[in-house]
Amino acid sequence: MVIIERLYMNIYYLVAVILFIIGFHTMLTHNNLLKKIMGMNIMDTSLFLFFVAIGYIHGGQAPILREGVMQYVNPVPSALILTGIVISVSFTAFALALVVLLHKQYGTLDADKIIALRSKRHA
């Protein structure tokens, strides 16, 4: 029972790590550029989760000063994550733009094929 309890207590971290690995793996091993971008997003998301989880306290309230509330959630991570999300979005947007460009120029989204096209051009 203890392990389940521990798992439960740390479930956010665990999920974050799992998500991170999934994202990582997707980013590196998938040929499709779009899938790569998805992997990137998954990875980012996992990190957001992780951050927020750090700041979260069981039973804590939103950090707004009110009567009778003793436990607040740490506001710093949440605030940071807002910035992080913005960055992530801009990265994604930029990556998508690049994907569009690539598709225009190579006519495919498969990284292998792009490489093949490129080296053919070189040769």
Binding site: F20, G23, F94, Q105
Partner: peptide
């Protein structure tokens, strides 16, 4: 350059992560 920059982007994102 687009291709290289995309590659850079992916690895850079990894690093950032």
């Amino acid at each position: 350059s687009v291709e290289a920059s995309f590659r850079y982007l992916v690895l850079s994102a990894l690093g950032s992560g």
